[in-house]
């Protein structure tokens, strides 16, 4: 017997909350969609033209009745709106301390890189009981990262990062879908999410394995370090930072042509035009690809663009590196 599910598994902290709201909505719907048809059935049988019943004094308007069936539904939808809104804000606001995983979508596969440098394709291993933040971008068209068992979905856009977070609660394997139509093999852009206890996750992280990189080359010997020791994604970023000559201007001690990046991530930067901006992933991304869009106050617009010179993959590593500078700076 093939399994025949009627309800999806609950495997994240959101799942139960979303389902509660869902069941509340189903209950509300049953009151309307379940009762109203019976009212209609009753009326059309009782008042069928063959029935001899009292039809005197028909009414064709009643303000009280109109107000009742305007205001009661209004109150109910407001209730579900606020319920949904609070949950939504929560689902869209990642906590401060998260495990950051970088995701690149491309026609038609998902490419994932963990902080320690471990890569995987069309799979996502996550620890349970730990908030995980996915920092996602696309190389081509719009995709959407969707894990039904976690009740969460976020479009993945080219040219910017979108962020999604969740906390898995139950070990197991779950579906991973691309939910935004992205071309011919859209329905093959699927995979699995493996939720593991933290210890198993760390063991898995330390296991090297060959993986196809987004640019098509095969990476066989990944430099894997135990997650507690260091951050090889950031290490790769640091190497890149040196190789690209960034250090020439962005001296760590400050005083260079460009601002120091020490403690930059998460800080509020003052810009030349007087406005301020919070230095998050999207700001860092823009500052690398299009440096002149936002000039930090006190510096000249002299940095060249790295658009087309580094891949999405390398960009992720650079950003991981800059983020690691914030951690040590604190």
């Amino acid at each position: 017997m093939r399994d025949f599910p009627l309800f999806p598994e609950q495997a994240s902290t959101f799942a139960n909350q979303v389902d509660q709201l869902y069941f509340f909505l189903v209950a509300l719907s049953l009151i309307f969609a379940g009762v109203l048809p019976f009212v209609i059935l009753y009326l059309i049988v009782r008042y069928h033209r063959s029935q001899k019943v009292d039809r005197s004094n028909p009414v064709d308007s009643n303000l009280k009745l109109e107000l009742t069936w305007t205001l009661i539904p209004l109150a109910l939808v407001m209730l579900v709106f606020f319920w949904g809104a609070f949950l939504y804000v929560q689902m869209r606001t990642p906590p401060a301390r998260t495990l950051d995983v970088y995701v690149i979508g491309k026609q038609w596969m998902w490419h994932v890189q963990h902080p320690n440098g471990k890569r995987e394709n069309n799979e996502l291993h996550v620890p349970i009981g730990q908030p995980v933040k996915l920092i996602m971008t696309s190389q081509d068209v719009i995709h959407s990262f969707y894990i039904p068992a976690f009740r969460i979905k976020q479009d993945v856009l080219p040219g910017r990062y979108t962020i999604m977070w969740f906390e898995a609660t139950k070990p197991g394997e779950y579906h991973l879908f691309c939910a935004e139509y992205c071309g011919t093999e859209h329905s093959l852009m699927i995979g699995r999410v493996v939720a593991l206890p933290l210890a198993d996750y760390e063991r898995w992280l330390a296991t090297p394995g060959p993986v196809v990189l987004p640019d098509g080359t095969i990476d066989t010997g990944q430099a894997i370090v135990a997650p507690s020791i260091g951050d090889p994604m950031a290490a790769a970023g640091a190497r890149l930072f040196t190789n690209l000559g960034c250090l020439g201007c962005h001296a760590m001690a400050g005083g260079g042509v460009g601002p120091s990046l020490q403690g930059l991530y998460g800080a509020t930067e003052k810009l030349a035009d007087g406005s301020t901006v919070v230095a998050d992933e999207n700001y860092l991304r823009e500052s690398i690809l299009n440096p002149n869009a936002k000039i930090v106050a006190g510096y000249a617009a002299v940095m060249p663009s790295y658009q087309g010179q580094i891949s999405e993959d390398q960009l992720n590593q650079l950003i991981a590196y800059i983020k690691s500078l914030a951690d040590t700076g604190n």
């Binding site: 709201l21 949904g84 979905k153």
Partner: peptide, 12 residues
């Protein structure tokens, strides 16, 4: 229309 539920069911 309820945002939190929509995150799960949209595009399905």
């Amino acid at each position: 229309g309820v945002t939190a539920v929509d995150l799960h069911v949209t595009d399905t």
